[in-house]
Simulated scan of single mutants.
Amino acid sequence: MTHNTPLSPRPLRRHSDVTRRVLTAAQLRAQGVTAAETNEQCRPGGSWQQILPGVFLLHPGPPTSEERLHAVLSYAARSPFRETSTGATGATGVAGVPAQPNADEPRPAATPRYADAVITGLAALTLHGFASAPPLPSLDTIDVLVPRLRRLRTMGCARIVRTPAVPTPSYVTGLPVAPVPRALADAVGELSDAATVRRLLTEAVRAGHTEPAAVIRELTEARLLNRPHVADAVESLLAEGRAVAEDHLYRMVREHALPDPVWNVDLRLPGGPHLGGLDAYWPEQAVAVELDTRAPRQEDDALWSEYARKREVLERLGITVVHVTPRKLRDSLEQQAAVVRTALMASCDRDPAAYVVVLPR
């Protein structure tokens, strides 16, 4: 047998998709391919190649980006999925290798193909559709999350990222991918260029991938906020988050036919103290809307106390304060419009509010 001799009549000669082009040693053994035969096929000039320890590419050419992703997951997965090797090719196309599910459908949690392995970092952001993330072919390594106690080393194109708990993945083209906030934190942890970090963080919010609070929670957990270039980028992230939330607020008023408020104002008592700033205010009805764009940091309790104090003072003066978050505006705009409309209509049944001075903020 020479290294060019095909392993016919084994069903491996049919590998029409990536799940049949990238196989582990265990999967090959389950189909009756011995280690000696695998080594023979992987000799120089052979038909196969070993792309990572225990992971084989069943063609001699360069791997595609999809093949690299599957190879990294195959290398990092807790254990190969169990083949059902029946000795015949049925609906799966290749005996013992289950067909890949619809790309838009998550795999059943009980039987994940790649147990305890999740793509993260820049590769995950690219899969999530980030325009500012590099294309997959340009990445020398692909980050993959595994449980902290796994005995795995970074090898070849697979960079192992250990974590106390592997997050529940999203599925993109059938691949387990870390949620955007976690993928961002893992990517930022490896980046030193301030402009790149800022672009990634602002795109996360501007393009609607996630909320600032979720990103900051992950950056805090990863202890990245003490890095000056990350802290600066977070300020841009928060500004972007507020701008997006304000756009949603403007759209809520316009699309749901609410009366026009005065925007971004400060309230004061005549000749008295400053009462606080508001994002929208209806003077005739004495109804205010305030956006909660707090970052989840240690001063949360103090900042929330300030929100609560201002609300209490305004409501004592007869002003109704509607408190909304960016997520509520993004996910339930119609419901938030109904809350504001109800507050405006109820103003007729309340005692008149105290006179206040409205100033531009």
Rank of each mutant, 00 (worst) to 15 (best):
P360G: 12
N4V: 13
E37L: 11
L269C: 06
S8F: 12
T210N: 05
A103C: 11
Y307N: 03
G174C: 08
V339P: 05
A214D: 08
S85H: 14
A243M: 06
A71K: 01
A117E: 02
T320Q: 10
D104E: 14
P164E: 03
R10P: 00
T173G: 04
H59T: 02
V322F: 04
A117W: 03
E218R: 07
V146P: 00
Q31N: 14
L73T: 00
N4G: 11
R206Y: 09
Y75M: 09
N4Y: 08
C348R: 11
R294G: 04
C348T: 12
C157I: 14
R206P: 01
A178M: 07
P326H: 10
R21F: 02
T126G: 09
L125A: 03
P60Q: 06
Q336K: 13
A280F: 08
R206W: 09
P212F: 02
P296Q: 07
L333M: 15
S347G: 11
P98F: 07
A25T: 12
A346V: 11
A245Y: 03
P62N: 11
R242I: 06
Y250I: 13
V197S: 01
G54V: 02
P134C: 02
A302L: 14
V146F: 02
S47G: 09
A346Y: 07
V55T: 05
P167G: 10
G318V: 09
A109P: 04
P106K: 05
Q49H: 11
Q27A: 06
T38N: 00
P261L: 08
D266H: 13
V166Q: 01
E299K: 10
T5W: 08
R107M: 12
M1N: 07
A239T: 12
Y307A: 04
A353M: 10
P80S: 15
R198D: 07
P326T: 13
P9E: 08
A308S: 13
V197T: 08
L201K: 02
A123D: 01
A71L: 05
V118D: 01
V340I: 15
V146A: 02
E218L: 05
L127G: 00
L125F: 09
T24S: 14
T154A: 11
H209T: 04
V18S: 06
A124S: 07
H15G: 15
P60M: 05
A133Y: 01
Q100R: 14
A35S: 14
V322C: 15
G189C: 08
G208I: 10
A354T: 15
D140Y: 04
R297T: 15
A110N: 08
T163G: 08
D186I: 06
T168K: 12
L12K: 00
V18A: 12
R78D: 12
S192Q: 13
E334F: 10
A117L: 08
R29D: 04
A30T: 07
Q298V: 14
L359Q: 14
P11G: 07
M1W: 10
I160M: 05
A337V: 15
A115L: 15
Y114R: 00
M252E: 06
R251W: 07
L23F: 06
L303W: 10
F56T: 00
Q49I: 04
P112V: 04
G318L: 07
V197F: 01
V313P: 00
T325H: 10
V322I: 15
G271R: 09
I142M: 03
M1E: 06
T220G: 10
